[in-house]
Structures are given as structure tokens and as C-alpha cells.
């Protein structure tokens, strides 16, 4: 996994710091962004291999950022994990949108970090 780059998009600085510390400890290169707009800038500049995306954020929400990613043919293949405090029926919602393909991972806060790590490894091995 060494050198694989993960972008964490979350407006809660402590959540972002937690995920960053944990993923760094597991050998990833980590970038963070506090909302969807900054997230898109980072995606274009840094070309991450994986994105973890919060849904409820000020400025630009995770839903909008996800759609922007899907609409860009250059970016739509970057795998996205949704990491959110919104209840599980949101999972059903985003997975049934016809306009966008479902995210590859879905984690509800507070996350199970072992599972998140396992899923990240699985996705990045492909």
C-alpha cells in the first residue's frame, strides 16, 4: 500500500485528523479538505487513489462533490468511500440514483476503522 494517496474530505477537523493519523500509520499518503469545493481542487491537483467523503458539509456538500466527480470522465474512476453520520437510509438513497454509479464503500460514523482499512486495501489492490 505504500505511497497510495487518500484524500479525506470532512468538515469536522477532528474527524479528518483521526482518519489522517490512522491511514498514515498504515502507510498511506494522506491529504485533507474541509468541504466539497476544496475537495475538488485537491482531487485535480493531487490525483488521489481513493477519496473518503463526508456528506453533510457547509459550502459544498458531499453529494454535490460526488456528482461532480461522476460527471468528469477523468475523475469518475477514482473510488469513493462515503463516511457520514447521516442514518443508513441515505445509503439506499445514493445507491439507487440512476444518474451516478454507487460509491464503492459506505461507512457510518463512528466508523469501524479496521473495516475501513480492509476495504481500502481491497479496492486499491485491484
Amino acid at each position: 500500500m505504500d505511497g497510495k494517496k487518500i484524500l479525506i474530505v470532512d468538515d469536522e477537523p477532528d474527524v479528518a485528523a483521526y482518519l489522517a493519523a490512522f491511514l498514515k500509520d498504515n502507510g498511506f499518503v494522506v491529504r485533507t479538505a474541509a468541504d466539497g469545493r476544496m475537495g475538488m481542487e485537491q482531487v485535480r491537483a493531487e490525483r488521489p487513489d481513493l477519496i473518503t467523503l463526508d456528506i453533510n458539509m457547509p459550502e459544498e456538500s458531499g453529494v454535490r462533490m460526488y456528482r461532480h466527480l461522476q460527471e468528469d470522465s477523468d475523475l469518475k474512476d477514482i473510488p469513493v468511500f462515503i463516511v457520514t453520520g447521516i442514518s443508513s437510509n441515505f445509503k439506499g438513497f445514493i445507491e439507487t440514483r440512476r444518474q451516478v454509479s454507487p460509491p464503492v464503500g459506505y461507512f457510518e460514523k463512528p466508523i469501524d476503522r479496521v473495516q475501513l482499512l480492509a476495504k481500502a486495501k481491497e479496492v486499491l489492490m485491484k
Partner: peptide
């Protein structure tokens, strides 16, 4: 109540993050 659940989840995750950092 729905909003409260969301806020608490974020707080829990923050606390868990703090514990992880202390631990590691």
C-alpha cells in the same frame, strides 16, 4: 432528534479519534 443523532455521531468519532491518537 434526527439532527441530534448526527451531531452525536460526529462527537463520538472525534472522541474515538482522540483515543486512537493517544493510544498510537
Amino acid at each position: 432528534v434526527a439532527g441530534l443523532a448526527h451531531t452525536i455521531k460526529n462527537l463520538l468519532m472525534g472522541l474515538e479519534g482522540g483515543m486512537y491518537m493517544l493510544d498510537s
